[in-house]
Amino acid sequence: MTAFAFQAVPQNATEWLETARTAEANGFDTLLTPDHPGQCAAPHVALAAAAAVTTTIKLGAYVVNAGVREPMLLAADVATLDVVSGGRALLGIGAGHNPAEWESVGQTRPDVRGRVDRCIAVAEATRRLLAGEEVTVDTPALTMTGARLEKPRPVQAKVPLLFGGGNSRLLRWAAEEADVIGLSGLGRTRPDGRNHEVRWRLDQIDEHVEPLRGKVLEALVQQFEVTDDAEAALEEMADDVGLGVDELRQVPFILVGTIEEIAAQIREHERRWGITRYALRRTALDHLPALIKALA
């Protein structure tokens, strides 16, 4: 069965709490918010507020930058969210990509290998802390001595791990360790440090997903639009990414068309790649009930 997460950024208290209520009522099973220190709200603070006005929707960051987060502080944030939500937290983690996020805390962004090493080390240490273990690590990527998260203890026996990223080594690790693997189809970071090249050719997606067969895969949707004229809606993007409109309509990171056409795309994505989850944004909020009905 296809499931949907909703990714949003808090703007003010009234809007954020109403968004959380609406997302839950409309059938989203998870509420996600990004983590870009200095550029958006602190994710676990915002999600704790959302927990107070919801009852069933799961809550998590999509995704924390492991390069600038320490496992003990991250574990405490996630455990606290799990407590105040009655056991609905997840641990969302990635390697980070924006150099400004390192510079803002007085660090230099590591090379790819360094970011991967750090992401794996932080994820594994945080999971062990959430599980109640004592953690000692002494590596170039992470140093901890006798760390233990005594309080608060999470409600869940095992807090689910959501990994988001595209590095091949991290994906191999996530295939063994993560409960959900978030796919964005994004490639190399561009010189501005924020935007990315895309890997949206169908053969690239085939290659990317092949080692992940049988895992829970979630596509981060970059454009969601309900329209009777998908071709017109996609023409400009097709030029930007160097793909034809017909190919772009098959990409799991783009859902554009009528509700029935989008439902058909989702069925094809599951058949071809095994994708069973989607992370959607604001433009999808009010359309999900109709989409769920079309998929039934």
Results as ranks from 00 to 15, higher is better:
residue 64 V to K: 01
residue 82 D to K: 02
residue 79 A to H: 01
residue 58 K to H: 14
residue 71 P to T: 07
residue 83 V to A: 08
residue 100 A to E: 10
residue 66 A to C: 12
residue 81 L to D: 07
residue 93 I to H: 11
residue 57 I to E: 02
residue 74 L to F: 14
residue 91 L to I: 10
residue 57 I to P: 00
residue 60 G to K: 09
residue 87 G to R: 03
residue 69 R to S: 07
residue 101 E to R: 02
residue 59 L to P: 08
residue 87 G to W: 08
residue 83 V to F: 01
residue 71 P to K: 08
residue 89 A to S: 12
residue 79 A to D: 03
residue 58 K to F: 12
residue 83 V to R: 15
residue 84 V to K: 00
residue 78 V to K: 01
residue 99 P to F: 09
residue 92 G to W: 04
residue 61 A to L: 07
residue 79 A to F: 13
residue 70 E to Y: 10
residue 93 I to C: 07
residue 70 E to S: 13
residue 93 I to G: 01
residue 101 E to Y: 15
residue 56 T to F: 01
residue 87 G to H: 06
residue 84 V to D: 08
residue 101 E to M: 09
residue 65 N to S: 08
residue 84 V to C: 07
residue 68 V to R: 00
residue 61 A to G: 06
residue 79 A to N: 09
residue 97 H to V: 10
residue 78 V to G: 02
residue 88 R to K: 12
residue 103 E to S: 13
residue 87 G to Q: 06
residue 97 H to M: 10
residue 92 G to H: 04
residue 103 E to P: 04
residue 89 A to L: 06
residue 98 N to K: 08
residue 80 T to W: 06
residue 60 G to Q: 02
residue 103 E to F: 02
residue 93 I to K: 03
residue 101 E to C: 10
residue 88 R to P: 05
residue 75 A to I: 06
residue 66 A to M: 09
residue 88 R to Q: 05
residue 91 L to G: 14
residue 56 T to A: 13
residue 57 I to Y: 00
residue 74 L to K: 11
residue 78 V to A: 04
residue 79 A to K: 06
residue 86 G to C: 12
residue 101 E to H: 15
residue 85 S to K: 10
residue 90 L to G: 08
residue 67 G to R: 10
residue 78 V to W: 05
residue 89 A to C: 04
residue 84 V to H: 08
residue 74 L to M: 14
residue 97 H to C: 02
residue 91 L to N: 02
residue 100 A to H: 11
residue 101 E to I: 07
residue 103 E to T: 11
residue 74 L to V: 15
residue 58 K to N: 14
residue 98 N to P: 01
residue 76 A to P: 00
residue 97 H to W: 14
residue 99 P to M: 06
residue 102 W to T: 00
residue 73 L to S: 09
residue 64 V to I: 14
residue 66 A to F: 07
residue 97 H to E: 08
residue 88 R to L: 07
residue 83 V to K: 10
residue 78 V to I: 15
residue 96 G to K: 06
residue 64 V to F: 04
residue 75 A to H: 05
residue 64 V to Q: 00
residue 76 A to M: 13
residue 76 A to V: 09
residue 81 L to Y: 06
residue 101 E to S: 11
residue 79 A to P: 07
residue 89 A to G: 05
residue 71 P to E: 12
residue 63 V to G: 01
residue 82 D to G: 05
residue 85 S to M: 11
residue 80 T to R: 04
residue 63 V to W: 03
residue 75 A to E: 02
residue 67 G to P: 09
residue 79 A to L: 15
residue 59 L to K: 06
residue 63 V to S: 01
residue 72 M to R: 09
residue 58 K to G: 11
residue 79 A to V: 08
residue 68 V to G: 00
residue 70 E to P: 06
residue 78 V to D: 07
residue 76 A to E: 14
residue 80 T to D: 05
residue 91 L to W: 13
residue 103 E to Q: 15
residue 59 L to D: 10
residue 83 V to E: 12
residue 73 L to P: 00
residue 92 G to S: 02
residue 57 I to C: 04
residue 67 G to K: 07
residue 86 G to K: 05
residue 90 L to I: 11
residue 67 G to S: 13
residue 79 A to R: 05
residue 98 N to I: 04
residue 76 A to W: 01
residue 86 G to A: 10
residue 71 P to C: 06
residue 99 P to A: 07
residue 60 G to P: 07
residue 88 R to F: 04
residue 75 A to P: 00
